[in-house]
Each structure stands twice: as structure tokens, then as C-alpha cells.
Design a binder for these strands. Structure first.
Length: 187
DNA sequence: AACCCGGAAGTCCG
DNA sequence: CCGGACTTCCGGGT
């Protein structure tokens, strides 16, 4: 079932991946610039899980062959095609379509089974969930959000936005890694 | 080391 | 021009 997305170049993701791939390979060829999580994340298309895979698979030393393998895996698990129609919100007050707020984005993400590798409920009845793919969630948010900016949307930036919901009462703190919790509206 | 927290100031957009 | 919703930067905590 090949579906077309006329308004979104399907080669964007692939090109970005290939660029990052080459960057990473180049980086790893220089001993003074070893494989670190920071280096990996800097490329923009990988996250903590990819780093864990690489360091585990190569038992301390990273060969280009190892990296090739992992990046192929990473590429294969990158198949969630972006469809902006999945991210439209019909504003309750104005009855107009608009991009989601960050909290609405999270809600949509959690309900969309296509993104089950990105995020999952820890306890849905409590509103407790965990982000599995921090950098990919952040990058997806960059595509979805209304407010466009210059810099790269990192998990750090993304998480700061979420933390503002502690103040508004939409979320409560968990103090756990990649874990957030919607405040339940039940009295 | 890599998150988490939240203040302060800046930006985008309705 | 204003204000809500982030975004950016960052020092401090776990």
C-alpha cells in the first residue's frame, strides 16, 4: 500500500540519515574524536538507544563494520512516515484546524500505534508514560509544532516545554528518566 | 555522565 | 501591541 505524500518530500528523512551516517563514519575514523554519546547525538538522527546498541555490539571498541550494522538497523526502524494529517487538532473554541500544543502532541503520539516504538504508557490509568526514543520524539515535535524556530529541536528543549506543564497543572513530576505523567482530571 | 528542575529572557504567532 | 505557549540558555541537584 504505497501512499503518496505530496506535501512532504519522502526523501528528506533518507537524505538526513545518509548525511548523518557519513558524518558519523568520518568522525569515528579519527582516534582523537572517539565514539561518544555526545558525538552520536550531535549528528541529530540517533538517540540513546542507538548509542547503547553500538557500544554493546562492539564490546568497547567500535569498528566501521559495527557502525554499518547498527546504522542499518537504525535505518530500518526509522520507517514511520510522517503524515501531518495525523497531527491536526480541531480547536474546541474557534472550531478551526490547527497544529497541536505540546501536550496534545504527546496525547496523539501515545494514542497512535504507529509510534509505539517512540513512546509508551507505563500506566495509562494514571497518565504515566515513558519516552522511548527521545531524539526522535523531539524531531517529530519539530515537524508538528506550530511555532517554527531556528535551532535544532533536541530532547533537552522538548523536555523544558513539558516541564512548564507542572506549573499549569497539566502534568505532575515523576523525577524519572524520560518519564512524565498527565495529571488526571478525576477529582 | 546524563538526566531532572525551574528561573529568566527571548521568540513566534494568533 | 499584547499575551500564551513555547524556545533558548543555564546553574544547580540527583
Amino acid at each position: 500500500m504505497a501512499e503518496k505524500y505530496d506535501d512532504n518530500d519522502p526523501h528528506d528523512d533518507e537524505n538526513a540519515m545518509l548525511t548523518a551516517y557519513e558524518e558519523l563514519r568520518t568522525t569515528l575514523k579519527t582516534p582523537e574524536n572517539p565514539l561518544t554519546e555526545a558525538n552520536l547525538l550531535k549528528s541529530g538522527n540517533f538517540d540513546i538507544d542507538d548509542y547503547t546498541n553500538i557500544t554493546h555490539s562492539s564490546s568497547g571498541t567500535s569498528s566501521i563494520a559495527d557502525i554499518d550494522n547498527i546504522l542499518r538497523l537504525s535505518e530500518n526502524s526509522h520507517e514511520v512516515l510522517f503524515d501531518h494529517h495525523e497531527w491536526e487538532i480541531c480547536d474546541p473554541s474557534s472550531n478551526r484546524k490547527r497544529p497541536p500544543r505540546q501536550s496534545e502532541f504527546l496525547q496523539l503520539l501515545l494514542e497512535n500505534s504507529r509510534y509505539s516504538s517512540y513512546v509508551s504508557w507505563v500506566d495509562k490509568s494514571q497518565g504515566l508514560f515513558r519516552i522511548l526514543r527521545p531524539e526522535r520524539v523531539a524531531d517529530l515535535w519539530r515537524k508538528v509544532k506550530c511555532r517554527q524556530t531556528q535551532g535544532k529541536m533536541s530532547y533537552e528543549t522538548f523536555a523544558r516545554g513539558v516541564r512548564y506543564y507542572y506549573g499549569t497543572g497539566l502534568m505532575i513530576k515523576t523525577n524519572k528518566k524520560y518519564t512524565f505523567c498527565f495529571k488526571q482530571s478525576t477529582q
